[in-house]
Structure formats: C-alpha cells, structure tokens
Amino acid sequence: MKLKLRIWRQSDAAAKGKMVAYELDDVSEDASFLEMLDVLNERLIGEGDDPVAFDHDCREGICGSCSLVIDGQPHGPQGATTTCQLHMRKFKDGDSIDIEPWRAGAFPVIKDLVVDRSAFDRIIQAGGYISAPTGTAPDAHAAPIPKQDADAAFSAAACIGCGACVAACPNGSGMLFMAAKVAHLGLVPQGQPERATRVLGMVAAHDQAGFGGCTNAGECAAACPKEIGLDVIGRLNRDFRKAATRAA
C-alpha cells in the first residue's frame, strides 16, 4: 500500500525540529510499523540522507523501547499494543500518518523520535524496590500470597516502562507508571515494610523530575499497552495520604 508520512525530524537535542513529509510506496500490510520505518530508512540511506532515528529493541512488545506517537496516539490506534506490535494492516492504502516523539518536559528529545526517559529510572531509584540483599532471603514458601493479590500484583508489574502514559497525559504526568510500581510492591507482603517511605520517595522524585500533576484525566490508562488501570492511581493516592499523614 501507499502511505503519506509526516515525521518529526530533529538533528539533536539543541536543534529545533519540524515535521517532514515522506511518501512510501508498496508497503506490505504484514509488515510491522517499525519494519515500515526500516524500509523508509533503507531508502533514505540510499539517497544519502540521515535515516530516521527511533528507539526499539525487542520488537515483541515487552522491552518498552519503542515510543512513537502515531496520529496523536502514543503507540498508535490499536489498543493494548506497543508500536512494534502494531502492524500495517491496521492502516488503509493512501493513509497519511503523523509520527512524533513522546512529548514531555521530563522526556527531552535526543534526536528525531528518540527521547530521554531516564527520569523513570530516577523514580525507581527513589524507592521502587524491595530491599532484599542477595542471600538474605527466606524460603520462597515462607509467606504464601493469596492468588488474587499475586495476580493483581502481576498485572501492575506488567508495566514495561515505555512512557506512553506520560505522552498521553494532558498534564504530562508520570502518575500511572509510578502508581503501577507502588501498587505492585504494595500488594505483596515483602513490600510492606517500605510501603510508606516508598510512596513518599517516589512521588517526590516524580515531581522533582518535572512531570505534571495528575488530575485524573484518564488518558494514560487508555494509552497503556499493558492495560494498567486507573485503580493503581487510586491505590497510590491512598498509600500517599496514609504515609503523608503519618509523616506529618
């Protein structure tokens, strides 16, 4: 099929980029969205142009590298699907497609469609873990966990740290990402001792990193490829209120 693309080109962090138009012929509808970009890049290199830079690695929807805003939707039109898992059969011959990077103050553009998401790592450093030094662990069966809790913890832990929630949030908030981790660790017994310090630390790091505040706009959950729900934000709010009042 034929496509008209408009892609954000920005040579480096300092440069001020712009949308650039490209036409692409005979794209296979079995190709993935990123394979479509591979084809474009092969052509650009052939013509001596700089290929479009974009993050990607596993191309299986699990590493969280790929990060394209397609026609205004982070990860594109298909629900619960990462960019790398999006396939061209979702588009029609002759479509024009706009491709932009995640837009967030906390995610500055490095080049073209590649952004710096290290702010997420800093949020985790601020408490997104359970302190369990190697070798100190009791037997795995020491603390049984009700299946519902284990499953709920897993669903929250399924977050791939892609940042689509931030890209979708009108407030540029990292709330869903942060809340998913708070919920995961708060749902397992091993996570209880650090529950209060964790939520306080992570929220502080989140605000510090320049993410916006959450006003429950709910766009994040709709964009999340792993279907993390707004309930984790509720949990975070609850934990935060408890922790904050105890601290005060």
């Binding site: 190697t134 100190t136 662990a137 069966h141 966990i145 499953d151 897993f154 995961h184 397992v188």
Partner: peptide, 18 residues
C-alpha cells in the same frame, strides 16, 4: 527464594503457594 523476596510476582495457586 531471592526473587520472591524482591517481590517478583510468580504465578501462584489458590492456596497462595507458588
């Protein structure tokens, strides 16, 4: 043991065991 202590959410049975 180490991974469970870190909070890795392994699949569990209704009894709560792994």
């Amino acid at each position: 043991d180490q991974c469970v202590a870190q909070g890795v959410p392994f699949a569990r049975e209704y009894g709560g065991l792994l």
